[in-house]
Amino acid sequence: MTTHLPAATIEKYAADALPYADASSVEAHVLACPACRRLVAGQVDQARLRAIWGELTDRVDEDRVRVPERWLRRLGTPAPVAKILVCTPSLRGSWLLGVVITLALAVLASRTTGGGDLPFLAVAPVLPVVGIAVSFGRAMDAAWEVGEATVTGGFPLLLIRAGAVLAACVSVTAVAAVVLPADGRGALAWLLPSLLLVVVTLVISTTRAAMPYVAATISAIWLCVVAIAAASPRTDALFGSGAQAITAALTLAAAGVLLSRRHAIESGTLR
């Protein structure tokens, strides 16, 4: 003969008034007894049930957060931003590995070719430019158009992704700069040119030019400029303190232009 739960026990269970051990017994019983399950279901407060069920399903979904996203959150990145960053094409492992290998080769060239830190200074500013170009736009982001029609689409998304790519590149490059030749200027001299190239690339991309092509052109121009500077007797003309001051001023001016043209990005100018 099956023993059913007393009505008083069901009432207390439904009111969440049973001790933990007794509540567990009730739960074990209702799993095997359809009659008591129906009685319990009829008495449980539906709002409370929905809340518990919601929390349960939420936990199940939460456990499936991807590993890089979980790491970013542990580092203090707000959850929504972490979610956006893991969808950034140029923050994927393959891209970061490419950056590390390129920088390693540049450092090696700087230490072995006798050209000082010039190979490093030529390559380091270009990496964030390429990274940002492949982080945004129809050609590189599979879900670009879906994202573009959302509140965060356009300039806000571009800023979040550009910021993340810059942060990643600066971190890796800063580590690489430590092993440059001791008499070099590379530890910081690449930073302002890099910012300038990034901002100029974004500004030009607010016209109808496709960002990957703009990035490629700007990078090629930069490499030519460095090559010309390397051939001249005054290489400091490009990386000395005077040049850095001019670069800083140009970066600020370009940033102003970018801000004034941000609506072009929000109107879907970038491809």
């Binding site: 982001d141 879900a143 158009e145």
Partner: peptide
């Protein structure tokens, strides 16, 4: 909006992808 070629992050789960768009929204 459903574009002509919506484009997905193929390694994402369905939940993850919609969650991403919800973040953007």
């Amino acid at each position: 909006y459903v574009p002509q070629e919506p484009g997905f992050y193929r390694n994402f789960t369905a939940f993850d992808f919609v969650d991403y768009v919800a973040v953007l929204k």
